[in-house]
Each structure stands twice: as structure tokens, then as C-alpha cells.
């Protein structure tokens, strides 16, 4: 019975993935991508990896799905305009040369990945035993959090930096469309947001806290915060974000800055990069994660807004 379920999951994943890439209707393809993410999350649960399932459902399916649907809508809205206007609004399809370059880069990466996988030992427990033995000294009881925020915290430090670079990349392309600042959400939507957005904030903080001993953590909590920002922008309340560019920028970088400060401080204090002193390890992990949660949430929200957040110049309308 369980085998049949797993087989169904595997077939669904491949089929939905294929449909998401090949469906000529882009909006339907995006929907199938969202469904693919949910089925993938169930597959991660079946593989006893609830942390990954949470991240896949929140980021891979929810937020990426919202990004794709917005992109399709923007693309459709620009269809009546000519090529130059399209390029100016940032919705133009890239020419054949960038596409070829992107395809070649992807193939090269795929080849390198295949080479790396071939080099792996066939059956290996990896560092599981060492990680489990060091768990009591990590400050947290959830092994995933211990690895992400203690044993290999420099990986996470770089991930937080990558998120910031992603926002810088998007911001260098275009300004956030001013249409997000409309102030007239329908009554039902506004009252739903009034209920759901605070709940999402609480749930995000809850995920951050339980990450110490159960599946959860800064990335999952940050995804909920990002989701709240996406909902608020959809409700036309993105204007509040757009009106405070300085605050938005501060929140975007606070995660990386705090992480870097802790890393440098630990280097001076204990002599190891991100090697926390044992009695206060949990406190340091929480500090880094709390700042990270804010930046991750703001990053996902900023990516959804899809452009620079800055004060509108007078006369822009």
C-alpha cells in the first residue's frame, strides 16, 4: 500500500514537472509548478525530511509560484505593446544569444554535477555519526538546525549573502511598479489580510523558536514572513513598503550584517569562524536566526515586488 503511494508520488512528480515545462499556456504551467511543489513536499515527508518539506512547500511552491504567476501576468499585460516599450518595462524575452548562453551554462553545470555524483562513494553514512555525537554541544536539539547554524554555519552565511545578491540583481534591472501602491483593496480582502498577516507573523516566529528542537527555523519562518508581504502587496498595501525605502533596505541587510558581526566576533573570541562558546551557543544561534528571518522574509517580499523600492520621483505619477 505504502509502495503504491510512493509510486504514485514518483509518477506525479515526473508528470507534473514535464507539464510545467512544456505546457503552452504559461499560466497553467505555473499552476502545475505549484502543484509539483506540493507533491514534492509530500515526497520529502515520505523521505522523513520534514525540514525540507516545509521549505519546499513555502518557498519552492508558494513563493516561487507567486513569482511565476506575477511574471506571466506582467508578460500578458505587455503583449499589446511594441518591443521597445517591452524592453523598457523589463518584460521582454531575452534574445537568442542570452538564451543560448543560459542553456550552455545549465548543461555545463549539469555535467559538473553528474561528475561530482559519480565521484561519491556508493554507500556512505556521511558525517551523520560525527554530527549526532557533537549534537549536545551545539546548543540545539534539532540536528538540522545544529548543522545549518553551528557545524556548517558558514554555508548558511553564504546562503544569506546569496539572497541579498539576488535582490541587488533584481533591483539593478527595474523599479518596483507603482501599481502596487493602490490603496483600495476590496473589503473582504482587507479583512482577510487583517486576520491572516498577523497570524503569519506569529507562525513565522513560532517556526523560528521550535527550530531549536523540531523541524523549523529561520528559512521556513522567513518564508512565512515573505508570504505575508506577498499577500499584503496583492491586497494593494505594498505602498507602505514602497514608502519606506530606507527601512526596507535596513531589514534586507540586517541578517547578513548580524551574521557577519557574529562570525567576526567569534573569530576574535573563540578563535574559530562561527565557533560559539558552548554555554551560550543557543543564544547566538537565535540571534543569527532572528536577524536572518527578518532579512529572508524581506528578501522574498522584495523579489515579489520585482524591482527597486525607492521614493517615487516627483512627476512620475
Amino acid at each position: 500500500m505504502a509502495g503504491a503511494f510512493d509510486l504514485l508520488l514518483a509518477v506525479l512528480i515526473v508528470w507534473l514537472g514535464w507539464r510545467a515545462v512544456t505546457d503552452p499556456d504559461l499560466l497553467r504551467a505555473a499552476m502545475q509548478f505549484v502543484a509539483l511543489g506540493l507533491v514534492l513536499a509530500i515526497a520529502w515527508l515520505r523521505l522523513a525530511a520534514p525540514d525540507l518539506a516545509l521549505a519546499e512547500a513555502a518557498v519552492g511552491s508558494g513563493l516561487t509560484g507567486a513569482l511565476l504567476v506575477t511574471a506571466v501576468r506582467g508578460w500578458r499585460a505587455s503583449e499589446g505593446t511594441d518591443a521597445e516599450e517591452r524592453a523598457a518595462s523589463g518584460w521582454a524575452l531575452p534574445g537568442s544569444l542570452p538564451r543560448l548562453a543560459a542553456g550552455a551554462t545549465s548543461l555545463l553545470l549539469l555535467g559538473l554535477l553528474l561528475l561530482a555524483v559519480r565521484g561519491l562513494p556508493e554507500r556512505s553514512a556521511g558525517l551523520t555519526a560525527e554530527a549526532a555525537a557533537a549534537l549536545p554541544a551545539s546548543g540545539v536539539e534539532n540536528p538540522v538546525t545544529a548543522v545549518l547554524l553551528n557545524f556548517r554555519a558558514y554555508d548558511t552565511l553564504l546562503e544569506v549573502a546569496v539572497l541579498l545578491v539576488a535582490v541587488v540583481g533584481v533591483w539593478s534591472l527595474r523599479r518596483a511598479p507603482a501599481s502596487l501602491a493602490r490603496e483600495d483593496p476590496p473589503f473582504v480582502l482587507a479583512s482577510l489580510l487583517g486576520l491572516v498577516a498577523p497570524l503569519l507573523l506569529i507562525a513565522g516566529g513560532y517556526l523560528l523558536w521550535i527550530g531549536a528542537f523540531a523541524p523549523g527555523g529561520a528559512f521556513q519562518g522567513g518564508a512565512l514572513l515573505g508570504g505575508a508581504l506577498v499577500l499584503l502587496s496583492l491586497g494593494g498595501l505594498g505602498g507602505a513598503l514602497l514608502a519606506r525605502p530606507a527601512l526596507t533596505r535596513a531589514v534586507l541587510v540586517v541578517g547578513l550584517l548580524v551574521f557577519l558581526a557574529v562570525a567576526v566576533g567569534m573569530l576574535a573570541w573563540t578563535g574559530g569562524l562561527l565557533r560559539y562558546p558552548e554555554p551560550s551557543a543557543k543564544a547566538w544561534i537565535l540571534v543569527v536566526e532572528a536577524a536572518g528571518l527578518l532579512s529572508i522574509g524581506a528578501t522574498l517580499g522584495a523579489l515579489f515586488l520585482g524591482g527597486r523600492i525607492e521614493r517615487a520621483h516627483p512627476g512620475d505619477g
Binding site: 476590496p186 473582504v188 480582502l189 479583512s191 482577510l192 486576520l195 491572516v196 497570524l199
Partner: peptide, 16 residues
């Protein structure tokens, strides 16, 4: 309760 509130609201928004 959350799903009830969300689905009722979203249903209205889509229909509207």
C-alpha cells in the same frame, strides 16, 4: 478555522 475563513473569503473574491 483558518482554512474555513480563507476559503470563504477567496471564494467571494474570485466570484466577485
Amino acid at each position: 478555522l483558518l482554512v474555513l475563513v480563507a476559503s470563504a473569503s477567496v471564494c467571494f473574491l474570485v466570484a466577485d
